[in-house]
Design a protein around this nucleic acid. Structure first.
Lengths: 197, 197
DNA sequence: CACTAAAGCGGAGGTGCCTCCGTTTATTTA
DNA sequence: TAAATAAACGGAGGCACCTCCGCTTTAGTG
């Protein structure tokens, strides 16, 4: 199902075709950036989205504009996943699954790093916006898990975030993802240890 | 024969034609960057230097390499001018002329700012190298002027450098150069005031 | 001087960026 | 539904980047 992406609060609605093209562009770009890095060819993105290069540039006047929208979408997806997982799984499993997904998110973020750094000098709200949302989502999951007795209650979100710090290091080694996965598992064991339920 | 030159930091001299082309490229690039900013077309630079684009890229694999060399040359020229001026003019005049030239240097530096920032993250010696040399040159001029009694003796180089701080502000206004020129004059008047000679 | 290996040259060619504007399409109005 | 209008499309065209490799020049050597 297509998600209704309405990200500008004060902007008259786009024409239906324009909205369709815009959504498609963002979707394709997200894939392209993940695969090829931020330097993915914009013409290739336009082509794969089935629109002309002019259309891409009308919607996203610079590469950074496009990167920003993709990044925000990524964050959005992560927060949405938190809400969904918590309804479909026991609270501790939800937390673990979400943290695994968080690892992917960090990987993406690292890939976008150069462009994001440029964005952050221009658009300083981006960082506070997104990091607030992500840590909020995490807090929700942890509190739910603690409340249900699936994990110990003497730990809060900021402790867990801190414990996850390890995944920020050793950025580009090929086994980074596996190692981070194990780190998450280890952390979960620690959290489950001595839980009430 | 022993390999005395095995890991010598100085690379073996370029072939005569290569050295010629390289020098010409740097000279043309300095002009181009001054005129058009760091985004000057590299192909245009190669063309104006009378060499192929391939030659430019062999000598300077990235734009930043070229920018760095141009910048170092600029600093070199500034320091050289200090030595020369002090021999050709009374010490206070030498100082004044040099400071006028320093204004030009700052203008260039501002133009290169974006690229320099990238360079500085990669090559952190660049900044300390050059700022040391420039302030050294300035100190020489000031001490000479003070010793000859052309300017007051109760001021040292760091004070003057600080007083010049004003030229760093209001970077891009059209009258920046004139204003900076007046600032230098004013500063010189202050330095001459109450001088022995 | 003639010869040769190594160093250097240069520009065609493939690709990407971005703008401009004639054409197409969605939406509004009658 | 048809016409009018504003919005959006798309891709050609011009410019720049950068690589690749066959050709030229230089600097030694006999």
């Amino acid at each position: 199902m297509t998600e209704a992406t309405r990200d500008a609060p004060v902007q008259k609605p786009l024409r239906a075709d324009a909205q369709r093209n815009r959504d498609k562009l963002v979707e394709v770009a997200a894939q392209a950036f993940a695969t090829d890095g931020v330097d993915a060819s914009l013409e290739e993105i336009a082509r794969r989205a089935g629109v002309g290069i002019g259309t891409l540039y009308r919607h996203f006047p610079t590469r950074e504009h496009l990167v920003e929208v993709v990044y925000r979408r990524e964050v959005e997806g992560l927060c949405h996943a938190a809400r969904e997982l918590v309804q479909m799984h026991p609270a501790d499993v939800a937390l673990e699954l979400w943290m695994q997904r968080f690892v992917d998110y960090i990987a993406t973020k690292r890939g976008l790093a150069t462009s994001l750094r440029i964005l952050l000098t221009t658009n300083s709200t981006l960082f506070s916006d997104t990091s607030g949302r992500v840590s909020g989502a995490m807090r929700g999951l942890i509190e739910a898990a603690a409340a249900s007795g699936k994990i110990r209650a003497d730990i809060d979100a900021s402790d867990v975030m801190h414990a996850l710090g390890g995944i920020y290091s050793a950025p580009n080694t090929p086994d980074w993802r596996e190692r981070s996965g194990r780190l998450v598992k280890l952390l979960m064991d620690g959290l489950r240890f001595g839980a009430r339920g």
